[in-house]
């Protein structure tokens, strides 16, 4: 079965991104497909490579990057939500005249259409949020 996942809360502030991560890991372990993980609202903050959590805490962004690499996951950050919150890739930073980007490896920034497309293509869409 094909799952589409929405993460709509920021990391550390809320358990949502942890729950989503545990769900995705379990779904993959059971042989399901995860067609996309879409990060929306404050969930876009999961994709910054500049966070420095204490060493004895879980590394949320690194966990997603590693899981994404292992299973070739499509980790999509909503561009509209990302621009509001200061999450940029190299192209966006250039286009907007900003002096830096901060997107982490394995994530990509794209439009809200990716969320709708995920809903159309996935057998089940599940949202982790507040």
């Amino acid at each position: 079965m094909k799952f589409g996942i929405v993460v709509s809360e920021g990391p550390y502030q809320h358990q949502a991104s942890d729950s989503a991560y545990n769900f995705v890991k379990a779904a993959l372990a059971k042989g399901h497909e995860v067609s996309r993980v879409f990060f929306y609202h404050d969930g876009v903050n999961v994709g910054t490579r500049l966070s420095i959590p204490p060493q004895d805490d879980r590394q949320i962004q690194e966990q997603w990057t590693a899981l994404g690499k292992e299973h070739d996951l499509d980790l999509v950050i909503c561009i509209a939500a990302a621009q509001r919150r200061g999450l940029l890739d190299e192209n966006e930073a250039k286009r907007q005249g900003k002096d830096a980007d901060n997107i982490a490896e394995g994530f990509r920034i794209s439009g809200l259409g990716q969320l709708i497309e995920m809903g159309i293509q996935a057998d089940r869409t599940i949202t982790f949020g507040d």
Partner: peptide, 19 residues
């Protein structure tokens, strides 16, 4: 909170998909 506003943004984009 921002949820209502960003929900509306999804609805407007989603309208283009003829669902």
């Amino acid at each position: 909170t921002i949820y209502a506003q960003e929900s509306l943004e999804v609805v407007l984009i989603g309208a283009a998909f003829d669902q």
